[in-house]
């Protein structure tokens, strides 16, 4: 395998900075099978040039990026290239550093080196719902039908207000990642006031809707104490 400059073909192109060995585990066919094209570039600058050629790509940046400050690179990617950025977490990276990256607008994270499956999850989580082609998302016993605005849980209909539907859709697209409160707060509408409480209350409303629909099952929303929430499906 060519280690410094390699491309695996699929329909979503991911430009990763660094050495392929440190970024991904798995055969090219597995990535292709997940619909991913993984292109690695040795430096941040080379990756930026690649993104310039292909503005529909997604950038994967390892947290130990060494040729420029990480948050600065993330800012450049957002302001110049307008592409989603996934942070590749390398061992030893602090939770605070990750939360800082979310403040700089990264859209998801994945632990490095990543398997094709986890990378595909991170890519799904990094796309805004509008970009998601699937109209019906189905994970475990939960289905969300975007076009009909319908959610079912163990085949029971879950009644949700539009705002809470949006939040659930966002959580589902991000599944199985833990969504930090700070990130959830970006999805509670435009009003900048009291976002934290609105995010918490939305989670409470979702839980209530799930348990009203199907009281025999625990609601699928799990609290990750002091961090955020995730769907357990």
């Amino acid at each position: 395998m060519n280690l410094t400059h390699s491309t695996m073909r699929g329909s979503v192109k991911i430009v990763a900075v660094g050495n392929l060995d440190l970024i991904a585990r798995g055969r090219p066919a597995e990535f292709r099978h997940r619909g991913l094209t993984l292109a690695t570039r040795p430096t941040a600058m080379a990756a930026l040039l690649e993104v310039g050629r292909d503005p529909d790509s997604i950038v994967l940046v390892p947290t130990n990026l060494n040729d420029m400050p990480l948050t600065e690179f993330v800012d450049i990617l957002h302001s110049l290239a307008h592409v989603p950025v996934i942070a590749g977490i390398v061992p030893g990276c602090s939770a605070q550093a990750v939360s800082e990256l979310f403040d700089h607008g990264i859209s998801s994270t994945v632990a490095l080196p990543t398997s094709p499956g986890r990378l595909a999850d991170a890519v799904r989580a990094s796309r805004t719902p509008e970009q998601t082609e699937e109209l019906v998302i189905e994970v475990g016993n939960l289905t969300l039908d975007d076009a009909r605005h319908r959610v079912t849980w163990f085949e029971k209909e879950v009644t949700l207000a539009p705002k809470n539907f949006e939040i659930l859709r966002f959580m589902l697209v991000a599944h199985p990642r833990v969504i930090p409160l700070q990130e959830l707060m970006k999805h509670v509408g435009d009003n900048p006031q009291n976002r934290a409480v609105r995010a918490r209350v939305a989670i409470g409303r979702l839980r209530a809707a799930f348990s009203d629909a199907e009281p025999r099952h625990d609601t699928p929303i799990e609290t990750v104490h002091r961090i955020g929430y995730r769907l357990r499906l």
Partner: peptide, 13 residues
């Protein structure tokens, strides 16, 4: 406290 977090994102509110 976890109990606070559970309550503020619980089924109330």
């Amino acid at each position: 406290d976890q109990r606070t977090e559970d309550y503020i994102s619980g089924r109330f509110g």
